[in-house]
Design a protein around this nucleic acid. Structure first.
Lengths: 157, 157
DNA sequence: TATTGTTATACTCTATAACTATA
DNA sequence: TATAGTTATAGAGTATAACAATA
């Protein structure tokens, strides 16, 4: 992959003197223009691990909520049940998570509990380290205070 | 369409007491979780116009930079040349923009100038009005000052 | 050689509907 | 009837490679 942007403009507001007046007044477009390269850089950060952004977030949620079922995990992440299923299945094939028909209360046989086996924990640890480096690189133009403010404001949306 | 989120959690930080500690510390994930519903709501806002988010941004850029060529327009928007081509072609078929082999300096016959005919201007005006309403709805939890700060910080990424 | 536009292709993420098995 | 998981499919957005015409 190595998806370092092909697009010439490196700054994020106006480009070369061309007008972006309308778009520049909208938060939605700013968010899109920030999150796309962010995702690209994220993908670069975990390149070589055969993981993808959504994969890492799933491992992270399962690690912090062992035994959680797929639907609840997906809801936390904002991923629909229908999209969690194939991802969980792929994870399981790679031995990064384990699904058991056991449920937390042992009385709903529809629910499937997910848990991280050692291979999953190791992969997650590797990705976490890579992601921390990635975030530092991406956010180097923001002070610590600005990052905190940004997080707070984005979450209010 | 009418894609009002199917996902249960309505707030954006932690859900129901489940842990999101790791993800919650990363700006990238917050951005993703904010921009996805934002795009969905945007799509709802322009529903019925047969437009898509990228379509609107292209019309907007051409309107503000009449005669711009495709590559430059795409660069302003962060869209690769290869992806602009089919979008521009579809726009042209719908009479929302006009492409002429004339270039600004009349001496580069590779470049193609784009311009908004009346139908394109009318469609853009309609979309702009819808988008303004959409942004107000989405950002209703932020004060004017917070929106300004958010825009400034996101652009620094 | 480099660049504009084009085509074709692949991949990620998201949305929807329909199905099963449980409840 | 309602829910958890599954499957299949469709759509939007993005990335890459290769090509023709032009510079």
């Amino acid at each position: 992959m190595a998806a370092a942007s092909i697009l010439e403009p490196t700054n994020n507001t106006t480009s070369g003197g061309s007008s972006r007046e309308f778009l520049d007044s909208f938060v939605g477009d700013a968010l899109r223009r920030a999150s796309t390269p962010m995702m690209t850089d994220f993908a670069d950060a975990i390149h070589g691990t055969d993981m993808r952004p959504t994969f890492v977030s799933i491992l992270s949620i399962v690690d912090e909520n062992p035994g959680i079922n797929q639907g609840a995990g997906g809801a936390i992440l904002g991923i629909a049940r229908a999209n969690i299923a194939p991802l969980a299945s792929e994870h399981e094939n790679r031995k990064f998570l384990r699904r058991t028909p056991d449920d937390p209360d042992d009385n709903d046989r529809r629910a499937i509990s997910i848990v991280l086996p050692p291979a999953g924990k190791a992969m997650l640890a590797d990705c976490k380290a890579r992601i921390k480096t990635h975030e530092k690189r991406i956010l180097k133009r923001l002070t610590a205070a600005e990052r905190t403010t940004l997080l707070r404001l984005v979450r209010k949306i």
